[in-house]
Simulated scan of single mutants.
Amino acid sequence: MTRTSLTACALLLALCGSASAADNAALKKCMDSANTTVDMVKCNTQQAKVQDKRLNTAYQTALAAQEGARKQQLQEVQRLWIKYRDANCAFAGSATGGSIDQVNGSACVLDMTQTRAQELEDLVGP
């Protein structure tokens, strides 16, 4: 795949609702220097790890703020969300059978994790 094609694919991914480089400076910087599909997947994976740490911190904070049945509900919702994210991103990452699927799948994990971290942070407020 040529650099132009990779760049076009990265732009298309950003426009289709994946983790937008415009919202994530570190991702944008990494993607700007990505020359291959593997490089693009590495960019998404690195940022997904950052967002996963954010998500785990937000989850622990939100869980500590809940009481009784709400605490148990949040635990169950989070378990279900993880299953959904994994299944959804596996589906997104197998759409064409081409190498871009790897980028789509990793971008899906990043985007969904980033969004869920924000949702959990919003549960307890600023």
Rank of each mutant, 00 (worst) to 15 (best):
I82L: 15
A34K: 03
K83S: 05
S106G: 05
C108E: 00
G125E: 08
A64H: 08
R70D: 15
L80C: 05
V77K: 14
A117P: 08
A107M: 04
Q72T: 12
E67R: 08
D122E: 12
D23S: 15
K83R: 09
N56A: 11
K28I: 01
L12Y: 04
S33D: 10
Q46Y: 07
A19E: 13
L110I: 01
G125H: 09
L110W: 04
K42F: 04
E76I: 06
C16P: 00
T7S: 11
M1T: 07
C9R: 14
D39C: 06
A10C: 02
Q102G: 06
N44T: 03
K29P: 00
G98I: 00
Q114T: 14
Q118P: 02
F91M: 13
V38K: 14
T45W: 07
A48H: 09
T37M: 11
G97Y: 14
L6T: 03
G97P: 01
G97V: 04
Y59T: 01
Q78I: 03
T61W: 01
Q72C: 01
D32T: 06
R70N: 14
A21V: 04
L110Y: 03
E76F: 04
A34Q: 05
Q114M: 12
K29M: 07
Y84G: 03
Q114R: 15
V50I: 15
S18T: 10
I82T: 13
S18R: 11
A21Y: 00
T4G: 04
R116T: 03
V103R: 08
T7P: 00
L74T: 02
R70S: 12
Q118S: 07
V109F: 08
Q60M: 12
D111S: 15
E67S: 12
Q78A: 03
T2L: 10
S5A: 15
R85C: 04
L120D: 10
D39K: 05
A48M: 06
K71E: 09
G93I: 04
A90L: 12
M40E: 04
A10M: 12
V38D: 14
N24S: 12
S33R: 10
Q118W: 02
S33F: 07
G105C: 12
R3T: 06
A34P: 01
Q66S: 08
W81F: 08
R79W: 05
A25M: 01
E67N: 11
T2H: 14
S18F: 15
V77H: 10
K83D: 10
C89Q: 05
T61M: 01
N88E: 14
L123F: 15
Q51F: 15
T115Q: 13
V103L: 08
R79S: 09
S33H: 08
R116Y: 09
Q47N: 15
N44R: 03
Q47S: 05
W81K: 04
T37S: 14
L80P: 00
D101E: 09
A58H: 09
T113D: 01
A8Y: 01
C30K: 12
C30P: 05
K71C: 01
R54H: 09
G68K: 05
A10Y: 01
R3M: 02
T57N: 10
G93H: 12
C108L: 06
T37L: 11
L120E: 11
G105I: 06
A65T: 00
A26V: 05
N88P: 02
E67G: 11
M31F: 00
K49E: 13
K83N: 04
Q75M: 09
